[in-house]
Nucleic acid binder design. Structure first.
Length: 130
DNA sequence: ACTGGGGCTAACC
DNA sequence: GGGTTAGCCCCAG
């Protein structure tokens, strides 16, 4: 009954981002998991990118893996804004513009999306011939 | 209907 | 520690 409409997908992502409490941060991959699409970190970024005009969305609380501002290389200006916002919320930044995930990473309770119940069949990406 | 691309991620060298 | 390769997912042209 549910048609996986794009709208719905973005809605889940936005919902996941909004779940991030103030003063906390989450990674793209984490948001993806919460949104019910483990491994779709890129989708999160893309979805947010399209939803940026959508004010009210704490997109700045979403960081790259390891609390890095992966966005800095593509859009330094936006990254700087992101950092300012986070610092305003009390999120400490490390030297290289990194966030201390060990201290501020959002503790996820339970995922949202219907796919969330799907067993952890999908392991993290990569896994390239090791 | 298919191809390309993207605020990603983790391993490999 | 840094740069490259490969993979997952979904949306848009």
């Amino acid at each position: 009954m549910d048609k996986p409409a794009a709208k719905d997908t973005y809605a889940r992502i936005r919902a996941a981002v909004r779940r991030v409490p103030r003063g906390r941060v989450a990674t793209y991959g984490q948001i993806a998991v919460v949104a019910g699409m483990p491994g779709a970190a890129r989708l999160v970024g893309y979805a947010l990118y399209r939803s940026l005009p959508h004010h009210g969305l704490p997109w700045h609380r979403v960081l790259g893996a390891g609390g890095r501002l992966t966005l800095a290389k593509l859009d330094p200006a936006t990254a700087m804004t992101q950092r300012i916002r986070l610092e305003a919320e009390g999120v400490p930044f490390a030297a290289a513009g990194r966030v201390d995930l060990a201290r501020c990473q959002w503790k996820v309770g339970a995922p949202i999306g219907p796919r969330a119940r799907k067993p952890a069949a999908r392991k993290p990406p990569a896994k390239r011939a090791r």
